[in-house]
Computed example of a mutant assay.
Amino acid sequence: MTAVDNALREAFAPTGVLRASINFGNPVLAIQGTKGEPRGISVDLATEIARRLELPLEFVTFDAAGKSVAGVAAGDADFGFFAIDPVRGKEIAFTSPYVLIEGSYLVRAESRIQSNDDVDRSGVRVAVGTGSAYDLFLTRELKHAEIVRGSTSPEVVNTFLRDELDVAAGVTQQLQADAERLGGLRLLHGNFMVIRQAMGIAKSRGADAAAWLDEFISEATRGGFVRAAITRHQIDGVSVPQMAP
Rank of each mutant, 00 (worst) to 15 (best):
F82S: 11
R88F: 06
L182I: 04
A207F: 03
Y134L: 04
A179P: 01
A198C: 07
F79M: 02
D120N: 07
R88W: 08
Y134I: 11
G75D: 10
A202Y: 12
N23K: 08
N158P: 03
A229I: 02
D120Q: 04
G40H: 12
R51C: 09
D44E: 09
L185C: 08
R149F: 12
A83F: 04
G71I: 03
E58T: 07
T139N: 14
A20W: 05
T172F: 00
A169G: 05
W212E: 01
F79N: 01
A210V: 05
Q176G: 02
F94C: 03
T15K: 12
G170H: 00
T159E: 01
L182M: 07
S96H: 15
R162V: 10
T2V: 13
N191V: 01
A207N: 10
Q114N: 15
V128G: 01
T15N: 10
A70M: 06
A13V: 13
S96K: 14
L185K: 06
E141M: 06
A83N: 09
L213V: 03
G36M: 04
D166T: 10
M199H: 07
M1F: 14
V124L: 15
G190E: 00
L29W: 03
I101P: 01
F62S: 10
D163K: 10
N23M: 12
T2M: 04
F24T: 08
A65N: 07
Y98H: 15
V194Q: 00
D117T: 06
V226S: 03
A46K: 03
S68F: 03
V4I: 14
R140P: 04
D135T: 05
A7M: 12
M193E: 01
G183E: 02
F192S: 01
G16M: 15
L45H: 02
G129Q: 00
D163A: 11
L55G: 10
I201W: 14
F62C: 08
F81T: 05
G224S: 13
N6V: 07
R196H: 09
S115R: 05
V4S: 03
S122I: 09
I147G: 04
A83G: 10
D236C: 08
T139H: 11
V124P: 14
E102H: 00
L175H: 05
K203V: 14
R19V: 04
R227H: 11
M1Y: 13
L175M: 04
S153R: 04
I22L: 01
V87M: 14
F216W: 09
G170Y: 01
T221I: 12
P154Q: 03
